[in-house]
């Protein structure tokens, strides 16, 4: 069943085409990895899906409904978006930031309900943030910040999470922490589209991949269908020696987090 579907999405900024007739589909329960070189249009595609940029043409559907027919607030409850670099402009505490995630569920004057509180508590616990919950955001380390921001997005209980490089600049252990939070969310019948540069992580956590190149889809499908030597050479302009076995090696090195 497709949760989210974009058909023939095109976008240009000035004369510069950014996306050219890209199709994308997200199915229930899956993590779709959006990969491709810098400037391929991954972030722009994600922004279109998040509704923060309007496509020039193309159709976006959430379930059976067209995007334009869904009220802003309802869309915000169903799709959460985690941009590439989220600045937090005031030194709010961790708990306060995660509470912001409930905004789409609140009435303009309403307070956090008991249910809201429960969601917030469980998100904080799941993200291992209990020890930091009262710390101001700006005193946290990079890995802690990434978890807080993801927890904020998950606090909205979205069916769909759009995450733009959620593990950029994190060490391997923190990358795994974040990706595992994502995987956990999707295992409960939700789904996510994640922009990733680390192909190893992509291969490990994503069920399907979509490879973008110069604003077009170069390949989409199961890992083996997308991560082929030809595709990688065309998209990334990298040459792999003895290509097939190199890719196999790349994908088969997996490490796991030592549980604390």
């Amino acid at each position: 069943m497709s949760l989210l579907r974009g058909t023939a999405l095109s976008l240009s900024i000035g004369d510069q085409p950014i996306l050219e007739a890209v199709d994308i589909e997200l199915k229930k329960g899956e993590i779709l990895g959006l990969i491709g070189p810098n400037g391929a249009g991954k972030s722009s595609l994600l922004r279109c899906l998040a509704g923060s940029v309007r496509t020039d043409s193309g159709v976006l559907q959430l379930g059976q409904q067209r995007f334009v027919d869904i009220p802003r607030n309802e869309r915000a409850r169903r799709i959460a978006y985690l941009p590439q670099q989220t600045e937090v402009h005031w030194p709010l505490s961790v708990t306060r930031i995660i509470e912001l995630g409930r905004i789409p569920h609140l009435e303009p004057w309403g307070k956090l309900s008991e249910r809201d509180q429960q969601v917030i508590e469980s998100v904080i616990a799941d993200a291992d943030l209990l020890p930091f919950r009262h710390r101001p955001f700006n005193t946290l380390s990079g890995g802690e910040r990434a978890r807080v921001l993801l927890a904020r997005a998950l606090a909205a209980e979205p069916e769909i999470l759009l995450a733009d490089e959620p593990v950029a600049a994190l060490d391997p252990a923190h990358q795994l922490d974040v990706m595992e939070m994502l995987a956990e969310h999707c295992s409960r019948g939700n789904a996510a589209i994640v922009v990733l540069h680390d192909l190893r992580l992509a291969a490990h956590f994503c069920q399907r991949l979509q490879l973008l190149h110069q604003g077009c889809t170069l390949a989409v499908g199961k890992l083996g269908e997308v991560l082929t030597p030809d595709n990688l050479e065309n998209a990334y302009q990298i040459h792999l020696p003895d290509t097939q076995s190199a890719i196999d090696t790349l994908l088969n090195i997996t490490w796991s987090r030592i549980k604390k």
Partner: peptide
Amino acid sequence: RVGRALDALTLGEETAQSMGID
């Protein structure tokens, strides 16, 4: 009634928009 929207803006304009803020 702008309080909540301003709270959302703490996380930047893109995030605020994705949270339903016009």
